[in-house]
């Protein structure tokens, strides 16, 4: 029962309170680059969530059974980035074979997930927080859903903003950053929602 409680709390806390984009500043590049339309933003979020969940599982296993077992902490960054790159490659091949429609919709964003710092950040946070296997997978899933939530909300705002009267110098990146700041303020309201 205690285990289940921790897992649920970790999930809620990664989605809302410690949102990867708005609180931890991980994955800002796709957040600014792929948030022009709700539809593409949602596909990007889903692909990232999928890769994040798999990454959490794969890196936990590698970290526990290879790196810590043989005492090789200096290989951590190199091995994690290789795992992530090959995972993204694998997911790309899988989606291409099983659902060509989805593959077309994601296009260039799929290979770019490799250099999304949210993924490597997630892989590095797991040993730092000392989660077990189940909690790690839930942490990865929660981080992905939090990412999707923030990017879809931002895309919705930006679609509406298309009709707004934005000063010439603030068009594009600056107004998106200021909007993100206001969203981050709104998300601060979630802090103190739960305590572990």
């Amino acid at each position: 029962m205690e285990e289940l409680r921790v897992v649920i709390l970790v999930f809620i806390s990664t989605v809302l309170i410690n949102n990867f984009i708005l609180v931890k500043f991980l994955g800002i590049c796709p957040f600014l680059g792929v948030s022009k339309q709700v539809e593409t933003a949602f596909s990007m979020g889903m692909a990232t969530t999928f890769v994040m969940t798999l990454t959490a599982a794969a890196t936990w296993l590698i970290n526990t059974y290879i790196l810590e077992y043989f005492n090789l902490p200096f290989l951590r960054y190199v091995s994690f980035i290789i795992v992530i790159a090959s995972l993204v490659q694998f997911v790309e091949m899988f989606i291409k074979k099983s659902s060509p429609v989805l593959y077309k919709a994601l296009g260039i964003y799929l290979p770019l997930i490799t250099t999304n710092c949210a993924i490597l950040g997630l892989a590095l946070l797991i040993p730092l927080n000392g989660y077990n296997f189940i909690t790690s997978v839930v942490f990865g899933l929660g981080a992905g859903i939090g990412f999707t939530l923030a990017i879809v909300l931002m895309a919705g705002l930006r679609e509406t903003l298309e009709f707004g009267d934005v000063p010439e110098s603030l068009k594009g990146v600056p107004i998106t950053l200021i909007l993100a700041g206001i969203m981050a303020m709104a998300f601060m309201g979630f802090s103190g929602l739960i305590s572990i």
Binding site: L22, S169, L170, I178, G181, A184
Partner: peptide, 19 residues
Amino acid sequence: ILPAGAFISLGVLVGFMNV
């Protein structure tokens, strides 16, 4: 110094550079 301030100050800075 909180996350919200980071977004807003960078946004204002980039806007200012555009000016």
